[in-house]
Simulated assay, not measured.
Amino acid sequence: MKFTTPARRVLAAGAVSALAAGALVTTTATTANAAPGSNVYSCTTSAGPQNVTVDVDVPLIGAVTQLDAGQPVDPAVLPVTIEANLTFTISNNFKLLLGSLGVQEMEVPAYGGDFGNSKIPVEAFAASVTDMTQNEDTTWSVDVTTPVIAFKAPAAGTAVPVQTPKKFGIVAQIGGEPADVTCTRSDAADVLTTIDVVKTASTTTGKSAKRSFAKGTNAKVNVTVAGAYKKPSGQVILKKGTKTLDKGKLRKGKAVLSTKALKVGKNKLTVIYKGDGYYTGSKDAVTVKVTR
């Protein structure tokens, strides 16, 4: 059974421009940018749990120092390939078990480091059981190198950790049929590197829903909040001076606010967006006309 390799996603033109302008901040690539980690995983098998030690290093990730929150990053469009170097180590008993079942490859369709509320995934790959080398302590190891694929930066935060994953899946061929194995981390996550993720500017637009409203009826204001990478979320407020007239939550970047507390004539109001984990706040002035 062949596993499906995730399709590479290309950055939108705006994001490419952002990268060129320095939204992806890096340092000069040196050995100091290495991002190694090691964890023991307990993997479910028909013969009970089996431990797999995974050593991982993603050297060029250590060169990234800052990203915009929500920013799509496709390593395929960068000047150098960002690769993950992994070493899988299993016990001699696990190796014998795999051999008895006729397993020649451990296919890993989805492996990725945890990055805030997002992930940094790598290309699907296979770790060859038949190519494993026995170590002095009788364990067996195999090395795999696979490229990092497209990901999105998480919500904003200072020194957001890129960590070894909580779990990953293995697909093994047993008797010509695929067997799914889940491997769960047994110890604390290793931090490969940290990246500052910063909020970007939002744009708020308020517009009266109608040219005018009769006094005593709900005067409605349509609110749209836009951002560079994803639909902003969170709260918007309608105010007249310091007085709050209405509040609402954005849905897909939009909201409708309303009020009856307006005098006859032109009322100058302010729509305020409070911001969220990805965007800073913003506001807009809107005029609502009320007639008798």
Results as ranks from 00 to 15, higher is better:
K2P: 00
L11C: 14
L11S: 14
A20F: 13
A20K: 10
G22S: 15
A29R: 10
T31F: 04
N33E: 10
N33S: 14
A35N: 13
S38E: 13
N39A: 06
N39E: 02
C43Q: 12
S46I: 00
S46N: 01
G48C: 12
Q50A: 14
Q50K: 15
T53S: 02
T53M: 02
D57H: 02
A63W: 10
V64S: 02
T65M: 05
D68V: 03
G70W: 05
G70M: 02
Q71R: 00
V73A: 05
D74Y: 06
A76D: 11
I82A: 13
F88H: 06
N93D: 15
V103R: 13
P109M: 03
A110I: 01
Y111W: 12
Y111M: 00
G112V: 12
G112T: 14
G113S: 13
K119L: 07
E123V: 07
E123H: 11
A127C: 09
V129E: 10
Q134P: 03
N135K: 13
N135V: 01
E136W: 07
T138D: 13
T139D: 05
V144A: 01
V144M: 01
P147C: 09
I149Q: 07
A155N: 09
A156T: 01
G157Y: 00
G169A: 07
I170D: 05
I170G: 08
G175K: 08
G176D: 10
P178T: 06
A179V: 07
V181A: 11
T182F: 09
A188C: 07
D190A: 15
D196N: 11
K199V: 03
F213L: 13
K215H: 06
G216V: 00
K220W: 04
N222I: 02
N222K: 13
A228G: 01
K230H: 09
S233I: 00
V236E: 02
G241K: 01
K243D: 04
K247C: 03
K247P: 08
L250G: 09
K254H: 07
S258K: 08
V264M: 13
G265M: 03
N267P: 09
T270H: 14
Y278W: 09
Y279F: 12
Y279P: 08
T280N: 15
T280M: 04
V286L: 11
K289Q: 05
